[in-house]
């Protein structure tokens, strides 16, 4: 997108009135901001033990943590979509008493430290939790220390990103199309599935990507609620933190691997979207 715009400007040079120079009062902080975000990353790259890299990223523990991270983050995103899109619809398209309160509560996980979120999940779904005790007593199901707990912790922390994004998209969408669909005989469910959802699909996609990225980087709620055991609950961020305790270089390798994989996935998705759009 940006590349195309730049190319167009290049071709038109000479025909177009050039905009004034970007003012330094914007440029300076802009560069500072970019540097602030990019430099730590550069630090990681500089300090990484490159000759050792290939061997270290293919160690079984690393690969199992990576695989766990990828599939749990994806599962958390799917779960967030299944629950979050209808929730966003409810918040954007209906009026019910307490809607504002529900809306505020939904965004709480954005504000609360994830560790607290993890503790809260323990209080509800833990073995002695409000619901967890019945799951344990009646079905013998224990959620903590399982990959399911990882998915739940990630969903708790990441779903608000999706809900907020999709709700915004729904509010911005032209509701007249929904009216048009209704005049054609479509009930609300049909309107949602065939008109509303396609219209906000880019917003849903963007929300899902944000949700996935947040789930992938989730640490606090996961380590608190799901624990930390290789292969079942030690996702990449937990592996990074654990490695940090004894071998900072290993933590660096893990971080770069996580970064590389997530960037690759996001870039692939972007390509696909650019095509669809």
């Amino acid at each position: 997108m940006r590349g195309r715009a730049a190319g167009a400007r290049h071709r038109d040079r000479g025909l177009r009135v050039r905009p004034g120079r970007a003012p330094w009062i914007l440029l300076l902080p802009a560069f500072a901001g970019a540097a602030f975000l990019v430099l730590p990353l550069a630090g990681l790259l500089v300090r990484a033990p490159w000759p050792d890299m290939a061997r270290r990223v293919t160690e079984p523990e690393v690969l199992s943590a990576l695989w766990l991270s990828l599939w749990t983050a994806t599962a958390a995103t799917v779960l967030s979509l299944l629950l979050g899109v209808p929730l966003a619809w409810l918040l954007a398209r209906t009026e019910f008493p307490g809607r504002r309160i529900v809306r505020a509560l939904v965004t709480v996980p954005l504000v609360v430290p994830p560790v607290v979120g993890g503790v809260a999940l323990l209080f509800v779904l833990g073995r002695n939790g409000l619901l967890g005790q019945y799951l344990h007593a009646w079905f013998g199901i224990g959620i903590p220390f399982t990959p399911a707990a990882v998915v739940l912790a990630q969903t708790f922390v990441a779903m608000p990103f999706l809900v907020v994004g999709v709700e915004g998209a729904l509010r911005a969408a032209d509701r007249r199309y929904e009216e048009a669909a209704a005049t054609l005989g479509a009930g609300r469910a049909t309107v949602f599935a065939r008109v509303t959802l396609p219209a906000v699909l880019p917003g849903v996609g963007a929300g899902a990507v944000l949700c996935w990225a947040r789930a992938l980087g989730e640490f606090g709620a996961t380590v608190t609620f799901a624990g930390n055991f290789p292969g079942t609950t030690r996702t990449m961020p937990l592996a990074v933190y654990t490695a940090m305790q004894s071998d900072p270089e290993a933590a660096l390798v893990l971080s770069l691997l996580l970064l590389g994989v997530s960037l690759a996935v996001l870039a692939a998705l972007r390509e696909k979207w650019a095509f669809v759009r």
Binding site: D174, R176, A180, T183, L184, G185, R194, P198, A199
Partner: peptide, 20 residues
């Protein structure tokens, strides 16, 4: 009668054809 069950057809101002 709810909108979706009325025996009506509407041509809207900007036509509002479903773009997808």
């Amino acid at each position: 009668t709810p909108v979706e069950r009325r025996p009506i057809g509407v041509v809207f101002q900007d036509y509002l054809l479903f773009p997808h």
